[in-house]
Design a protein around this nucleic acid. Structure first.
Length: 602
DNA sequence: GCAAGGTC
């Protein structure tokens, strides 16, 4: 008997279906001489410190450097404290029984570092010795699955991938557990002050932005605006530069005559391509902006829709689909023609040539972008409907045509040079789907400008001096923080360039919501309206760690570089020794400097 | 009491 093990039930069932196996058992499916089973993500984790004999929280134990790491069953929190997750225990027993019967194992966990780790931890925990082969596919269409099974790889081809995954896991444990205990103990052991490779740089980003915002000194500046009139339609034009003093502005203001002369009119079309399909992070940002949902709420609702088979796998980091999935898109679009909000756009799109901007098999990583499955939604709650609509609506947008705008710039002379700019949408294209007002519109912009010709003189009906202030960068909210985490704090507006930077991001799509929740649970940050702001505790922790590597996104970057080298065969030992050395160093530093964190009474 | 990673 051959046993196929997937990372999660949905994939296990999908593969079984392709094989035509349909005898459903508890925790697995049988048929055609195969058995299909699955994990639920990580079933095993590195054991807690006490399992190596480090009892309690004590300076004497630090740094904790277990000579050999142990694995333990994933835990859940109950009234009695942490206990083995019963569902996980049960599935692990099922897997053990199947592995015992197996002649061969086929590893079908996700094609990536963590997928490899999920299987290997199970295999080694169960002390299994059966031979295994690896299925390596990046899309779960029938063709991709069949093709993958014709090209199974020797399991040992992925030994170095496992090594890199295991190193990632151990390094996070060593640095996180030790730094957390060191800081907590140094500050008087009055509560948990957690630190980690991902959570601490995230906290640092929130604190740095908060302080920058708080200490920002606004500067006053002046603008001069005139309102020329063309056949009863007046529009706003602004002096071509801003002024530091009211006197300078006043001089320009006084120089404005009764009429203005049209010096030039420029009108040029600008194409705005459709947005890419959603990955988890982008839909979390969108749901936060449009509906005020937290990242965690959006993930929960998506998981729900996914379990109801209404949307594809949500924890994806890719905004692309392959050609095989693209072949199903016309059918999915046709299925939306009855939708109450954008059925009309689905109908329009059904006869149109589809944009292929989101189609690129090379940019599909473990999972493709989020799509509706084509199943008809039924009795959705308002929140579920809202998220479903973001998925379905984005699909329509992504395959729609460009939005074509006309950008008009009119230069008017009246003592000084004034500029009026206006944007008019000529062809809505993808923007017709939601028909939302644009969020990045500048207030200098006129919606529409009257037709004027060069050389014309227009009466100026009104003129004014505007007193304005420079503004600090906005505090982070969940949407802007998620976006910043994707590029580790570097602000990159261009959507495609940001895609290319993803390898250098902080955390993964599946974990970012949890990171934000951890910072909230630790009372490091709180939600103030939609903003995320640090608490006094968060700021105190930040002050202690801000110049240390643990607070910098570059720590992840430098680890990732080494992990990639390990994947291609470099020494594991050397990296592990470096991590141990760093663990000793950060532990000592925190024990010394952590006293500075004085916890505020709650 | 603690990390980050995955998922029901």
């Amino acid at each position: 008997m051959k046993v196929i093990i997937a990372e999660k039930p949905s994939v296990g069932r999908e593969i079984a279906r392709v094989f035509g196996a349909n005898t459903k058992r508890e925790g697995y499916i049988e048929g055609k001489g195969y058995t299909f089973t699955w994990a639920f993500g990580h079933l095993l984790q590195l054991a807690a410190p006490q399992e190596y004999g480090y009892y309690g929280w004590s300076v004497q134990n630090l740094p904790m450097l277990p000579p050999k790491f142990k694995l333990s069953i994933r835990k859940v929190r109950t009234k009695e404290g942490l206990v083995d997750d019963p569902g996980v225990k049960k599935q692990l027993d099922i897997i053990k029984a199947l592995f015992d019967e197996a002649t061969e194992i086929i590893v079908a966990t996700d094609a990536g570092r963590e997928g490899e780790l999920i299987f290997r931890y199970i295999y080694y925990y169960l002390k299994c010795k059966k031979p295994f082969k690896r299925l390596w596919i990046s899309s779960q269409t029938d063709a991709a699955i069949k093709d993958g099974f014709r090209n199974l790889k020797p399991g040992s081809d992925y030994d170095t991938l496992f090594n890199s995954a295991h190193c990632r896991s151990q390094s996070d444990w060593l640095v996180g557990m030790n730094a957390t205990q060191a800081l907590s103990l140094a500050s008087g052991n009055k509560g948990v002050l957690s630190l980690g490779r991902v959570q601490t740089p995230t906290l640092a980003m929130i604190c740095a932005r908060y302080l920058e915002n708080r200490d920002f000194k606004p500067e006053t500046y002046f603008q001069v605006a005139i309102f020329p009139d063309k056949d009863g339609q007046s529009f706003k034009a602004i002096a071509d530069k801003n002024f530091k003093t009211r006197e300078e502005a006043q001089a320009v203001f006084d120089g404005v005559g009764p009429t203005g002369n049209i010096a030039s009119v420029e009108a040029k079309p600008r194409k705005e391509p459709p947005p890419l399909l959603h990955d988890l992070s982008s839909i979390q940002q969108e749901a936060n902006k449009k509906k005020g949902f937290t990242a965690d709420q959006t993930l929960g609702i998506l998981q729900n829709l996914y379990e109801g088979k209404l949307v594809t796998y949500p924890r994806t980091g890719s905004r692309y689909i392959g050609d095989d999935v693209f072949a199903q898109v016309p059918g999915l679009i046709a299925g939306l023609t009855e939708h109450s909000d954008f059925g009309k756009q689905a109908t329009v799109l059904a006869d149109a040539k589809l944009s292929k901007r989101s189609v690129n098999a090379k940019k599909v990583t473990d999972h493709h972008a989020i799509l509706p499955t084509g199943e008809k939604p039924w009795q959705l709650s308002p929140d579920q409907q809202a998220i479903y609509d973001l998925v379905a609506g984005r699909m329509l947008e992504a395959f729609h045509g460009d939005c074509i705008k006309e950008i008009t710039k009119i230069t008017i002379t009246s003592g000084h040079k004034f500029i009026a700019s206006g944007t008019v949408i000529r062809t809505a294209g993808w923007r017709a789907v939601f028909n939302d007002p644009e969020d990045d519109k500048k207030d200098e912009d006129n919606a529409a400008l009257p037709k004027v010709t060069q050389g014309e003189d227009l009466p100026i009906k009104e003129k004014t001096i505007l007193e304005k202030q420079t503004k600090p960068k906005a505090l982070y909210n969940e949407a802007t923080l998620l976006k910043a985490l994707e590029t580790a704090g570097k602000e990159i507006e261009d959507e495609e360039l940001r895609e290319a930077m993803k390898a250098g991001g902080l955390g993964t799509p599946a974990t970012r919501a949890a990171i934000i929740e951890t910072l909230l649970t630790r009372n490091y940050i709180l939600r103030e309206k939609k903003n995320l702001v640090p608490t006094p505790t968060g700021l105190a922790v930040y002050q202690v760690v801000k110049d240390r590597r643990i607070a910098q996104a570059e720590l992840t970057g430098s680890w990732e570089k080494r992990l990639e080298e390990i994947r291609s065969g470099a020494s594991v030992n050397e990296f592990q020794e470096e991590i141990k050395a760093y663990t000793r160093e950060i532990t000592q530093e925190l024990l010394r400097s952590g006293k500075a964190v004085v916890l505020q009474p709650a």
